[in-house]
Design a protein around this nucleic acid. Structure first.
Lengths: 344, 344
DNA sequence: TAAACCAATGCAAACGCTTGCACAAAATAA
DNA sequence: TTATTTTGTGCAAGCGTTTGCATTGGTTTA
């Protein structure tokens, strides 16, 4: 039946055209449900397409339409629960809107982020969803995309010098509330394990922490505010320092979920009881937090929600072609669990 | 300077060609470092390309070469730690080899898996990495790809009726060892919370469990082998049943990490102490397992390793064009933790 | 010095789809 | 009936690269 198949062995619209003795353009229009084609022809075309097992070649279509239906996602890593949820949310929304998702992780490396931008550029993505590395200061590597008016949506780790929608949470508020919660539960010597302060997210969290202490006329001891990369090594060192003090902290606000869990675990190895001797709350929530004993209080950052919002806003921007600098603030949630109830 | 830019506003090799008064084909060959082009010309071309900010259009290149440098990844979901690690491993290897990764989740739905295959087909991926849904029985939806000799590598949830490399662990062994470990620690009434038994992975795990009991002349009570979807609801129901028995199990082998964590948490709500009253070991390890108190024993399934192996094997298959039915067995690791030491 | 060869480049077709424009036939208006 | 519009299709160019096959001028061989 199918005789005129292409060189590559794929069925093309030409095969369908030949089979029906009509023009390829008619087939194309029929498959795209153009109003200019009669219902009868559409039926015939669809039937033959089905029979031959035709599947559109999106590469050719993309080239011709100058539109790939591809969304690029660039995140620091896939392994963190927050980003995995975000990615999942993005993918769901993209799929629903007929977009494919092409993904690359930067491993928190600025250099890799720069490289990835070139790849996304070459792939001619219709739009980009990005969460920056902790290292990223300059955004020059976005210029090529920006100049071409490729929509870029940033979430969580954003930078306002790149135009486009931003999906964020109020990190200042999150940290403020978390600290306030510790204070409300009787903590007097509260420490904060911060991330890289040159990254806005962590700067805001540190600020919220400081402000809460300030509002409550509690002292901020310099050694009680430690900035680090929040990996296991740094976390361990911070705890070592704090545990070596005569006046140990009686409460810690941790800037990431994973570090928070580590701290709970490390604390035990120092014979410290939670929450009795030490209350812990983390900025960022993982499923673990609720399963641990004691369960670990946290401020939940809605990863999936943020991912979905990013995708929805990106797709809208792609469709309207209108790049807006709107900021979408996603609500956070204080999850009070056993690690912070000294009275319990 | 750049005057002859294309309709789409992008810099093309034609722009470079015009600038240098040479043919586009020469530019193409120069940029691809063909031996037929003089070093002098290559230099000039590279210089102008750089100046104009040229980035190759992979869409056009793909169409022309009939090769997309795209790897499709199809997994049940991104949120599970195992699959997130696998995806991460895949992406790293793909990037290193110059491939892009396009990803779609099936949400454990066979129907969605079928749909996704069409998309991957249309996207003309050079190869596919797949982990099947629990529901998947037929593999007819792979036929279109198989017929076109598109390499397909399956990992973890595999089906041998689709040709190509398979990356797996020995689930029978994992479960056997886990059960054996419980028995070695004095458990007499061991239960198994299994997954969907029509899925080979879970069937093997159930078999390993049964065989271990058998080898040790321990009885297999019918109500002690429960198959379910391993979600929260099912896990809770299974525990409800077990906890209602006169003779409760004194050890449980759980077919997934997440269910294992849930069971530990649920057990406590029944006032059961771990490991005293009940030992728990899960097939699959998450970071949580080690942080919980007590820490939860597990058999580690190396997600990242499997993902990397999948990518490496896929890329090799793409390059050689030779689809082999090899099976790559990744080693598992029994992580003995506090949830299984009754004597401790 | 003519014949043969090689190195470097150009020409043009091809990849499979989309789309503006032209065109014929059919339907409507005058 | 003729003029005009509408409807459905076809033609062919174009998207940006790649690549087989000339072509050119220069170098080697006989």
């Amino acid at each position: 039946m199918a005789k005129g198949t292409s060189k590559s062995g794929e069925i093309t619209i030409n095969d369908i055209a030949k089979e029906l003795n009509i023009a390829a353009s008619t087939v194309s229009r029929a498959l795209n449900n153009s109003t200019k084609i009669s219902e009868a022809t559409k039926q015939k075309v669809r039937k033959v397409a089905e029979e031959l097992g035709y599947e559109i070649n999106l590469v050719a279509s993309s080239l011709s339409k100058n539109k790939t239906n591809l969304i690029g996602v660039v995140i620091p890593n896939i392994n963190s629960q927050f980003f995995a949820h975000a990615l999942s949310g993005i993918q769901e929304e993209a799929k629903a809107a007929g977009y494919n998702v092409i993904i690359s992780q930067t491993n928190e490396s600025y250099e890799q982020e720069v490289e990835v931008m070139k790849v996304m550029n070459s792939a001619r993505v219709d739009g980009l969803i990005v969460s920056l590395t902790m290292e990223t200061k300059s955004t020059d590597h976005f210029n090529a995309l920006v100049r071409k008016s490729v929509p870029i949506v940033m979430f969580d780790r954003v930078n306002f010098s790149v135009p486009g929608p931003k999906i964020v949470v109020d990190n200042y508020e999150a940290s403020f509330k978390a600290t306030q919660h510790l204070i409300g539960n009787g903590c007097k010597r509260i420490a904060h394990l911060a991330g890289n302060l040159s990254c806005k997210v962590f700067e805001d969290r540190a600020e919220g922490f400081k402000e809460a202490l300030n509002k409550n006329i509690l002292p901020l001891l310099p050694q009680f505010l430690l900035a680090c990369d929040l990996n296991e090594k740094d976390t361990r060192e911070a705890m070592k320092l704090w545990m070596s003090l005569d006046e140990r902290p009686d409460g810690i606000v941790v800037a990431s979920a994973s570090s928070g869990l580590m701290i709970a675990s490390i604390a035990r190895s120092y014979g410290v009881t939670i929450p009795g001797d030490l209350a812990i709350i983390s900025l960022g929530n993982e499923r673990c937090n609720e399963l641990m004993i004691p369960s670990i209080s946290a401020v939940d950052m809605p990863g999936s929600e943020m991912g979905k919002a990013a995708a929805i806003n990106l797709i809208e921007t792609i469709k309207t072609g209108h790049i807006e600098d709107r900021i979408i603030l996603k609500p956070i949630q204080l999850l009070m669990r056993n690690s912070t109830f000294k009275m319990a």
